[in-house]
Each structure stands twice: as structure tokens, then as C-alpha cells.
């Protein structure tokens, strides 16, 4: 993929840490503009992007815009992790079954592995990094820590995004609604009970504004 790397506007190398990356992003290395929607009301064109060729897209991730070149076949997951360094979002099965790659798209949980990057223009993408409040954890993250809602942690970013998406839609979910809400996320360590408790706690924290 060396030629791909030459293509995209992102100048961050793959060797950077997330913190270094975020610092560089904060300094404006990648940001085109800081707010607003791109693409949502744009005229859709019938232009064909040829296989293997890059096309310039703008993604709105965690409130910031990133402009880059992507191939048609690239998934949003690939772009988040490999091109932009948002490595909280994990690849598990790569086939829409495990939920490790769950991100919010316009506030709703979706699998980034089953979403093409070219299709993710003009929507708001939120990853776990976007739940941070400065250097502090957001309420769902805090609740997961409080309730020890993980063991190995690999599924955790996806679980957190599934819970975040659920609470944005249903701020006061029943246990059954929580079970439904995280039903698309596998945890091979079996931390489900703690995840459900963490989701209830996160709902309380959000409601009381305690975070």
C-alpha cells in the first residue's frame, strides 16, 4: 500500500502514537475547516471512480473535517485506523458480525467494516476518541471503568459506542433495551453482565449530568 500512502492528504505516518497524531490534528495538519456539514446537500454526481484510483473525500470525524484520497473498496474502518490513526476502533471479524468496529454515524451505531469510506461523506462520524472531554473520559467510558466492564478490552470501544448510541436514542433504557442495544457486539471474555451494569450507570450519569 505504499502508493496509497502517497495519495492521501494525511501527512501522519503509521508510526505515530494516537497522542502525537491528535496533537498534529489539533495543530491543523489535517483539518480543512472546523465545523459544518459537507456533502449532505451536495448534488450527487454520476462520476465513476475507477478501481484502484483515489478520489478526494472529506470525512467529518469527531467534529473535525479530514480530507483525503480513498480507493472505492476502502472501508471506513480501514480509513479510520490505517489512514487516520483512530485506532480505538477495532477490527474483529471484518464481516459485520462482532461489533468491534462500531462507530456512530449521524448518532446511530453502525459497523465501520461494512461501510465504504466513499459512502461516509456528508455524515457525522463519532469514534471513542470523540467521546473524550478534553483529557477526561466521557460518561459511558467512565461507567465502563467503574463497573470493570471488560477483561481483554478488545471489544470495549465497540461496546462503548453501542451503549453511547443506545443512550442517545433512549436515555433511560430498560435492561432488555440495553441487551438489545449491545446485542450486535460480541465479548469473548464474557463481560456482558458488567457491560449491562455499566450501561445503566452511564444512563444515570448522563441524566444527572454528574460527569
Amino acid at each position: 500500500m505504499s502508493s496509497d500512502e502517497d495519495n492521501h492528504a494525511c501527512s501522519c505516518g503509521k508510526g505515530l502514537t494516537r497522542r502525537q497524531f491528535l496533537t498534529s490534528a489539533g495543530a491543523g495538519a489535517l483539518i480543512v475547516t472546523a465545523s459544518g456539514h459537507l456533502g449532505k446537500d451536495q448534488e450527487v454526481s454520476a462520476a465513476v471512480i475507477k478501481s484502484g484510483e483515489g478520489t478526494k473525500i472529506t470525512l467529518l470525524i469527531n467534529g473535525k473535517q479530514f480530507q483525503m484520497l480513498v480507493e472505492p473498496r476502502w472501508s471506513l474502518l480501514h480509513v479510520l485506523r490505517e489512514e487516520l490513526g483512530f485506532t480505538a476502533t477495532k477490527e474483529g471479524c471484518g464481516r459485520g458480525e462482532c461489533g468491534a468496529c462500531t462507530v456512530l454515524i449521524d448518532g446511530m451505531p453502525r459497523y465501520a467494516c461494512m461501510t465504504l469510506a466513499v459512502e461516509a461523506e456528508g455524515v457525522e462520524i463519532t469514534t471513542v476518541e470523540g467521546l473524550m472531554r478534553g483529557e477526561d473520559l466521557g460518561p459511558v467510558q467512565k461507567a465502563f471503568v467503574e463497573h470493570d466492564a471488560f477483561q481483554c478490552g478488545y471489544c470495549t470501544p465497540g461496546q462503548i459506542m453501542a451503549v453511547e448510541g443506545l443512550l442517545r436514542k433512549e436515555p433511560d433504557p430498560t435492561v432488555e433495551q440495553i441487551r438489545q442495544g449491545v446485542s450486535g457486539n460480541l465479548c469473548r471474555c464474557g463481560a456482558y453482565t458488567h457491560i449491562i451494569n455499566a450501561a445503566r450507570r452511564a444512563a444515570e450519569m448522563k441524566k444527572s449530568g454528574a460527569v
Partner: peptide, 15 residues
């Protein structure tokens, strides 16, 4: 990685 394909974003049903 998904095998390569070209991509056409249809502007209309006809397209």
C-alpha cells in the same frame, strides 16, 4: 481487504 471495484454514485434511478 475487499477486492477492487470501480464505483459509480448514481444521481438518479435512471442513472
Amino acid at each position: 481487504m475487499t477486492p477492487g471495484f470501480s464505483y459509480r454514485r448514481a444521481a438518479s434511478i435512471k442513472d
